[in-house]
């Protein structure tokens, strides 16, 4: 699968030498293009771990399924909170599914026992 950089959103991490996606990619696949935006140098080598999608502060990266193994066009978008991720998945027929997943323990867990009136 391949990361797709949304060029209107990517700010190249303010044109630092290494944007965050480049720093984090376990496959050394993301880099800064000559236009100052992130680019995946070899989309076919992506393992779709989605580390870049998760870390991008602009929400400018999406993972796409290559047409060879999936139809046009589904989306899976994570929205990173402090201790949870909100995933939205839109399938090829436009059906939307959402998931809120805790990914880090917090000192305080959510459930209260005082009942509502």
């Amino acid at each position: 699968m391949a990361p797709k950089v949304l060029l209107n959103k990517c700010d190249g991490c303010k044109a630092e030498k290494e944007p965050l996606c480049e720093q984090i990619c376990p496959g050394d696949l993301m880099t800064l293009g000559t236009n100052g935006k992130a680019i995946c140098r070899d989309p076919r080598d992506c393992w779709d771990c989605m580390s870049c999608v998760k870390i991008c502060p602009q929400g400018a990266i999406e993972t796409r399924v290559p047409y060879q193994i999936g139809y046009h066009e589904a989306k899976l978008i994570p929205m990173m909170g402090t201790n949870r991720i909100t995933w939205t998945c839109v399938d090829i027929d436009g059906n939307v599914e959402r998931f809120v997943v805790k990914n880090h323990n917090e000192a305080d867990d959510d459930n209260d026992d005082d009942d509502d009136d």
């Binding site: 589904a74 995933w87 399938d91 990914n103």
Partner: peptide, 16 residues
């Protein structure tokens, strides 16, 4: 799956 291989959920969606 989202906790492990998130893109599997995407794969299912991409195949309807």
């Amino acid at each position: 799956y989202l906790n492990e291989r998130p893109s599997f959920v995407l794969h299912l969606a991409a195949n309807g």
